[in-house]
Design a protein around this nucleic acid. Structure first.
Length: 513
RNA sequence: GGGCCGUUAGCUCAGUUGGCAGAGCACCGGACUUUUAAUCCGGGUGUCGUGGGUUCGACCCCCACACGGCCCA
């Protein structure tokens, strides 16, 4: 540990002891505020007469963290920050008497309660003129610097609380927006008669998507379990069971890489509506996103970099095949697997690892098509082999009724007319297993026997939807990285930080005295 | 997985053809009863990410590693 830090901590500890020596509890159990700081300011302004008479808001109790201190001998100005904002407190020897001494033992970062009267200073700032101070929690560590805030991204993610304290104005609104997006989705779906449900996170089969699961073990059952990679198959079981419209907003887990738009756990909305198809889901998605954009930003338009993204329906709808041909010159129908691979390689796609046709098409799309989809766009009708849970498109052999929605080059939604023929579903799962056998390292969907049994009891025609909430929040909040819309993004555990992290054998040096 | 960049005081950052480690804020001491990046006077508090190497001498050059970021896959 650095000596300097020791000194800073020692200073704080000494102040803590002095506070205690005065008979003050530096960590009292409670402090009753009259209101938060923003409300206090609004209250004062509302009661303020035109003539500046300002004696109507007296004897209020406010509290916050000290983020700035300007001491001037026998008076001091402090800034008290709470979730609603900041209010200035004026501490004067005249008003506080012996209590004024406490200033010497206050630090930036301490939580302080102030009783006093609201007033305006000479410079016009609404301020609480303190008559009594209460230490509500002494801070024992120095805060990041007040002017530049906390900029080190690693520290911001690892110690998000410091980021929130130091960069409150910058980042708190992002997470408030995130919360509004989620509550807005709930309201939107609830209003349309959807039922919110909870399905298992610990599952015996990690099915419903092409992704590598986290695995774990249940001791009492002595059974391997996985963390879910999707909620799809359980929600479909509920449609089979007779619920008409269900949705779940839940965390799913994919044991894959971490980058600007991937975190190993992320929040997924899935909804299923009996007797709907993907066209109806499309209508719902554009309505939902526009509604939420307006709810959180007051506008269906969002400025991201140089682009103004307009979520106002209707969104552009393009055929996957046509769009790919337009952007890359490749008409999928003219190429068998091998020819497609050669053509892709010629266009600069890395084809060193042998990949399935579906995976190859996926790469072509993400290289040639997706980056161009800036305005909200539905891409329709994907190859069957990429979509084992989607219903075949009539009159288009090899294709399924599926759309993905993109904005700003990023996928935000995925939807199918759901496959409900159990025989075909079994064939599709088997097709996935063949892909797995042929192409090593390729993630495919897994066969879920229990789900097939469920489908054999009869699943009505259904429109399904998945929306990556984190990415939607990124768009609506104008954030580049998924880490900036996650309060606690996944980080590698630092050495020595967790005893659980590396259960390395340590030589036992006990039994000597 | 590959490439590039970063890691220096509590925080934000300088720095050196390789020669005693710097600033602002914070902090410590002093002055100051309407300040607001308060001001004024005095004080630098450091394992320069970690471990090796080269060198008379390394924060700087070399190698490896750790963590993070960006780009690519």
């Amino acid at each position: 540990m650095a000596d300097r830090e020791d000194t800073l901590l020692t200073n704080r500890a000494a102040k803590l002891e002095r506070i205690r020596a005065k008979g003050i509890d530096p960590y009292p159990a409670r402090f009753s505020r009259t209101c938060d700081t923003a409300t206090a300011t609004a209250m004062f302004e509302a009661n303020e007469g035109d003539d500046g008479s300002q004696d109507k808001v007296q004897d209020v109790l406010l509290a916050g963290r000290i983020t700035s201190m300007r001491t001037m001998g026998k008076a001091a100005f402090l800034d008290l920050q709470d979730a609603s904002g900041v209010i200035q407190a004026l501490l004067r020897l005249n008003n506080l008497g012996d209590g004024f001494d406490l200033i010497k033992d206050l630090d930036l970062g301490d939580h302080l309660g102030v009783r006093g009267n609201l007033m305006r200073t000479r410079t016009g700032q609404v301020t609480i003129d303190a008559v009594e101070l209460t230490v509500t929690a002494k801070g024992m560590r120095p805060l990041p610097e007040k002017w530049h805030g906390l900029r080190d991204v690693e520290t911001r993610y690892r110690q998000r609380y410091l980021d929130l304290i130091a960069n409150q104005d910058e980042i708190m609104p992002v997470f408030v927006l995130r919360s509004k997006v989620i509550s807005g989705i709930r309201r939107f779906l609830d209003d349309r008669g959807f039922l919110e449900v909870d399905t298992p996170i610990l599952v015996p089969v990690a099915a419903g998507a092409h992704a590598k699961p986290f695995d774990t073990h249940h001791n009492a059952l002595d059974q391997k379990l996985y963390l879910r990679i999707a909620t799809e198959l359980y929600l479909k079981r509920l449609i089979i069971g007779g619920f008409d419209k269900v949705y779940e907003i839940g965390r799913v887990f994919r044991n894959e890489g971490i980058d600007q738009d991937h975190n190993p756990e992320f929040t997924l909305l899935e909804s299923y509506e009996a007797y709907a198809d993907y066209i109806q889901v499309m209508d719902m998605v554009e309505q939902m996103v526009a509604t939420i954009a307006i709810a959180v930003n007051g506008s269906a338009q969002v400025t991201i970099g140089e682009n103004v993204i307009d979520f106002t329906p209707p969104w552009q709808r393009v055929s996957m095949r046509e769009e790919l041909e337009k952007r890359s010159g490749i008409d999928l129908e003219s190429y068998d697997d091998e020819a497609l691979r050669r053509r892709a390689a010629k266009l600069g796609i890395d084809t060193k690892v042998l990949e399935s046709r579906g995976r190859l098409i996926d790469k072509l799309l993400s290289t040639f098509v997706e980056p161009h989809l800036i305005q909200p766009t539905f891409v329709l009708d994907y190859p069957e082999e990429m979509s084992p849970l989607a219903k075949a498109k009539p009159d288009s052999p090899g294709y399924v009724e599926r759309f993905e929605a993109f904005a700003c080059g990023m996928e935000i939604a995925n939807s199918y007319s759901e496959l409900n023929d159990p025989v075909v579903q079994r064939e599709r799962f088997e097709g996935q297993e063949q892909i797995r056998a042929l192409y090593e390292d390729e993630e495919v969907d897994r066969q879920d026997e229990d789900f097939l049994t469920a489908m054999e009891y009869g699943m009505p025609p259904t429109g399904g939807l998945g929306v990556g909430i984190d990415r939607l929040v990124m768009l609506l909040a104008g954030q580049r990285s998924i880490r900036d819309v996650l309060l606690f993004p996944q980080m590698r555990t630092l050495k020595g930080e967790s005893a659980e992290a590396e259960p390395e054998e340590e030589p036992e040096n006990e039994a000597t005295e």
